[in-house]
């Protein structure tokens, strides 16, 4: 291999051809209310952690559904588990449980 002084980047495309990670399927099974999310953003607007970090629960959930498991796990760690989001969610998503599963996904749901 030769070092040319520059490298080829990976595509930013979300590749939907890959099947969902089994751990994500397991997570959706464990917390089915995650499937209810309509990405309205109420959770993110009230988020305590969102004042200072990029925490947006609805995006974590989108990452889960797009198979971006590592990004999701990393991002979920910003959550402080205060639960304000859950009070505002119009779909009744059990967000705290969802985030807990997301942040530990490959540890607790290892398949």
């Amino acid at each position: 291999m030769i070092n040319f002084g520059y490298t080829a980047s990976e595509s930013r495309h979300i590749d939907m051809d890959e099947r969902l990670h089994p751990a994500i399927e397991k997570m959706l099974h464990r917390e089915p209310s995650l499937k209810e999310c309509i990405a309205c953003g109420r959770c993110a607007a009230v988020c305590t952690a969102g004042y200072f970090t990029g925490m947006q629960f609805y995006r974590l959930n989108l990452m889960a559904h797009r198979g971006l498991i590592n990004e999701m796990k990393q991002a979920a760690r910003a959550c402080m588990l205060c639960g304000k989001c859950q009070m505002t969610c119009p779909k009744g998503v059990n967000i705290r449980h969802g985030v807990l599963l997301m942040s530990q996904i490959t540890d607790v749901l290892d398949v």
Binding site: F4, G5, Y6, T7, A8, S9, S11
Partner: peptide, 14 residues
């Protein structure tokens, strides 16, 4: 410019 060439080669890769 050498520093930019990664962008060029990445497009060819796609």
């Amino acid at each position: 410019i050498q520093e930019n060439r990664g962008y060029s080669v990445s497009n060819a890769k796609v």
